[in-house]
Design a protein around this nucleic acid. Structure first.
Lengths: 149, 149
DNA sequence: TTAATAAAGGATACCAATATCCTTTTATTT
DNA sequence: AAATAAAAGGATATTGGTATCCTTTATTAA
C-alpha cells in the first residue's frame, strides 16, 4: 500500500512536465523542484532514470530541460512503479517468504490476491494523461501540496 | 502493497506459537527463529513488541517462553500491521504529499481509494485464527519456506 | 570559438529499517 | 539460596533509501 518517495517524486515530475506540454520552453530541474517543493538534487537523479526509461525526454545545454515525447502521456502508472520500486514489486510476498506463489502460497497469499490483481489492473490501465487535470494552476498547486509551515 | 520484514516475522511468529497452542510447553524464541529460519535477535525484538501490545503472552525464566492468550486468536491482521508499520500506514499518500486526503486529494487518491478500503476490510476482518491450517507439519513448513540453498 | 546554461554522472553524507550482540531481570529447578 | 534458563532491554553494526554536492558533458547564444 506504500511506495517509496522516489515514486511520488517521479510521477509528480512527469505530471508537471506533461501539464506544460503546450509551452514552447523546456522545463528545468530547478523549476520542477521548486514548484513541487521537492529536493532538487534527488529529483535530478530520479528524473535521469525517468529519461533513461524513455518516459520523458531531455536535452542539455542552454534552453535545455525536460519535455514530453510520444510515450509520455500514454505511459501507464505501472511502468513508473516498476521503475522506482523494482520489477518485483507486485511479486514480493507480504510475509517475506521467498518461495511464496500461487502453487505454494503463504497464509496471506490468497486473502489479498484479488485486491492485488485489482490494483495491478488500475496501475496498468491508468495513464499519465488520465491524471492530468484541466485547471493547470489548481493542478500545480495540488502537486506541490506540503504541510503548513 | 508491501510490508516491512518486521510484519512478516511478527505474523509468522504469532502463527507458529498459535499453532502449538495445545502443547503444554511454552515456545522459546530460539525455537521460533530456527523453525521459521528468521534472525533470532531481530525476531526477539519484534516479539517483545508483540507481547507489549498484548497479542501474545510470555514469561521469563526457566521453562519460560511465548504462549497465546485470550486475545491472540481473535487478533485481526490490521492490529499487527499497525504495530509494525505504524498507525499511519493506511493514511499515507501514495505520492508522498503531506496534505492529501478526501477533501484535498492527490492525483492518485481517488483511483485507489476503493481498493485501499477493500484491503482495510480484509485486514480488519481476517483474524489470526483464520490463517491457521489443520495440517500442522505442513503449515510449519509453509511458514518457514525459504529460497533453495 | 567562447561564455553561459543545464542535464548527466559520480562521490559522499544522512537516516531509518534491519540485524546482531551483550547485559539485566525474572522465573524455575535443585 | 544457588544455579540455570529464558525473555527484556540497551548498545552497536549494517544496509538501503534518501539527500546533497561537485565535476563532466552537451547545447545554445553571443
Amino acid at each position: 500500500m506504500t511506495f517509496s518517495k522516489s515514486f511520488g517524486y517521479a510521477l509528480r515530475g512527469i505530471l508537471y512536465v506533461s501539464l506544460l506540454k503546450d509551452e514552447p520552453r523546456k522545463i528545468s530541474i530547478d523549476e520542477i523542484a521548486e514548484k513541487l517543493s521537492v529536493p532538487r538534487h534527488f529529483l535530478g537523479k530520479i528524473m535521469k532514470a525517468v529519461v533513461k526509461a524513455g518516459i520523458l525526454s531531455s536535452t542539455r545545454g542552454l534552453q535545455g530541460g525536460f519535455f514530453i515525447n510520444e510515450k509520455t502521456l500514454h505511459t501507464p502508472l505501472l511502468t513508473i512503479i516498476l521503475l522506482t520500486e523494482g520489477n518485483n514489486y507486485f511479486n514480493t510476498c507480504l510475509l517475506s517468504m521467498r518461495k511464496c506463489n500461487s502453487a505454494n502460497p503463504c497464509p496471506l497469499h490468497n486473502k489479498v490476491e484479488g485486491h492485488k490483481d485489482g490494483l495491478l489492473q488500475i496501475y496498468g490501465q491508468t495513464l499519465v494523461s488520465d491524471l492530468l487535470q484541466d485547471d493547470k494552476a489548481d493542478f500545480i498547486k495540488s502537486l506541490a501540496t506540503v504541510e503548513a509551515a
